[in-house]
Design a protein around this nucleic acid. Structure first.
Lengths: 335, 335
DNA sequence: AGCGATGCCGGGAACGTTCCCGGTGTGCAA
DNA sequence: TTGCACACCGGGAACGTTCCCGGCATCGCT
């Protein structure tokens, strides 16, 4: 439990100055081979570890990235893993905070991280967040991923959500479903709007009429999805397929379909979003749009580091990755 | 993008010394009411935020906790949420690192965090870890949770895994299952051993004979579980129930049971562990031992902070929380 | 012999705080 | 008047680094 050795200790023991020790440790020039060896030997012996605090204070950078995410579900935790991966590689440490989808929590997390003097932020905004001033105040480099911040001029990495909504809907159409409903997410989230746009575009391409009451906005909440689906299924003009903006919603929808005594995929087709492992475990297994979560995380971290080291203005950069439809039983009417 | 204001800036602007500013900001004594007001007004105006780096360097504590976890699955992410909760409350920031169940990753994560000068660690060890020297070297206060480190003399918070194994097995016995197998985890993990011990104790209590080849050690891997179960089911003396040490293993087992064309819970009973949401979504839904993940996280963080502020030796403290069996279709033979 | 180049090293400031200690001024009692 | 308590403030060290600058040898070249 004795105090960690410092550069001063080494200097004193070797009767040389701290400057020389510092140089010797960093293998710089201006140090004779003998002193360098002596210093390095002693530092090893004393188990010297440079004090990052002092270093950071000096050079005004901490080599730490603040990551704020709304939750740590399957997709997010993979994205974070991706961030971790490249951050570690690049010599950065990552501080992960969960906002729990709460605006207040997000704000105080941001403040805290800023006070801890992170070099910048990698953020996915909470579903509650409608205004972005708390991010602007940070006055630090940041990159958004997955759920971007509309109002902020900063680089971002995201899935092509439009494409995701499109291929899901197109697939349902190709499977012969005629009246396709959508459980969309909260209206302020761009990801849900983009998926909805993809849905609309697919309907348009195949010249299907858009029924206004086939579009349901609801929270990312399984129970809401259940209720919404119950209502959908009791309409006169009942939909014969449902596309949901997330797998959790899909689960809720599926439960409602079962409750109603309808069969899947025959009576009702279903496609979810995220390719959560659950989708392949339930019966019937649920088709879902897979997103390259790990890669999105990696791209975000790469973008962030690039931005730090690069003087060029990258605020307009937006990396968009492609989704992939995983077809399973819930939507496979014709083989 | 102008530099953040420092205490010096305020001092200079107000023509007073930095010491006085420092005192005024901390509402300390030895400052006249007027100067204090002036300082606080100006600091607000300049949006002054104390530099934590400098502070930490001075007082040799960072108010940061390093958290190392093997993964961020459902249970873990809830535990981390619990840690977050009380850490935030107590004014600490949390750095979460995933070891991905890898010993090497765990080691370098620990080193990195130590270098970043966290005040201590809250750790759940990776399944690969069999030796604990890398933790001892850290020479910092630490608390283990969930998966404890046998070799290390440090406080810990864990589930009563023995109890969990016991109630799961007892439940199966009470449901009339005669020949109960267990898919245990890696042999070096204490949690899996304790659950196994609970299983054995239950068998003993009801005077059941222990069949050696009903005990299968396997990784936390769904596919292994599938294979192991296939083998179990093709024995002459086929088991009629399986208790698995985790829900992921339970899923694997269930798939194997279905593949074999056996019915559940009639031919084969099944109980998992963790109460992952998946268990209630599959058909049949899977009985599982629920652990109070959030509370375990909270307890760990509390213990950690207590340890920091407390001079007393807490190295022998071990908090043990109780599990709860959630009975679902997979093991319910008699209603 | 003189001169610059080069190799090696030390001194000290700086990063932004806190904290200890000592100093000054005022008011009040002896 | 002297003394003393008290309120208020400033100076400077310290935390552990790096970095700039200047100094002293030594060497080689003219």
């Amino acid at each position: 439990m004795n105090k960690p050795a410092t550069i001063k200790d080494i200097a004193k023991a070797l009767q040389i100055s701290t400057s020389t020790v510092s140089r010797a440790l960093r293998n710089a020039s201006d140090v004779s081979i003998e002193t360098r060896n002596a210093v390095q030997a002693l530092s090893e012996q004393l188990n010297y570890r440079p004090n990052k605090l002092a270093l950071s204070l000096q050079q005004k950078q901490t080599h730490t990235i603040g990551v704020i995410v709304p939750n740590l579900d399957y997709v997010m935790s993979n994205m974070v893993k991706g961030i971790d991966e490249v951050a570690l590689e690049a010599g950065y440490t990552v501080m992960v905070c969960q906002s729990n989808e709460s605006f207040g929590r997000e704000t105080i997390n941001a403040k805290r991280l800023a006070d801890s003097l992170v070099d910048g932020f990698i953020i996915s905004v909470s579903s509650e967040t409608k205004v972005y001033d708390h991010f602007k105040k940070l006055n630090a480099p940041m990159v958004f991923f997955d759920r971007l911040a509309k109002g902020i001029h900063a680089p971002g990495v995201r899935l092509d959500n439009f494409e995701g909504g499109f291929i899901a809907t197109e697939h349902l159409i190709e499977q012969g479903y005629k009246n396709i409903a959508i459980l969309a997410g909260p209206q302020n989230l761009s990801i849900s709007n983009h998926r909805l746009d993809g849905y609309l575009a697919a309907l348009k391409k195949y010249k299907r009429k858009v029924e206004e009451d086939n579009i349901i906005y609801c929270d990312f909440n399984q129970h809401y999805a259940f209720l919404a689906t119950e209502e959908l299924l009791s309409k006169k003009k009942r939909p014969d397929a449902i596309f949901t903006i997330s797998d959790r919603l899909a689960i809720g929808a599926m439960l409602a379909v079962k409750e109603k005594g309808l069969s899947m995929p025959d009576d009702i087709g279903l496609v979810g979003f995220n390719n959560d492992p659950v989708t392949s475990l339930v019966a019937p297994s649920i088709s879902s749009v897979d997103q390259p979560a790990f890669d999105i995380g990696k791209a975000a971290a790469k973008l962030f580091i690039e931005q730090l080291h690069n003087d060029g203005d990258m605020r307009d950069v937006e990396v968009v990755l492609k989704p992939k439809l995983i077809v399973r039983e819930s939507s496979l009417r014709r083989s």
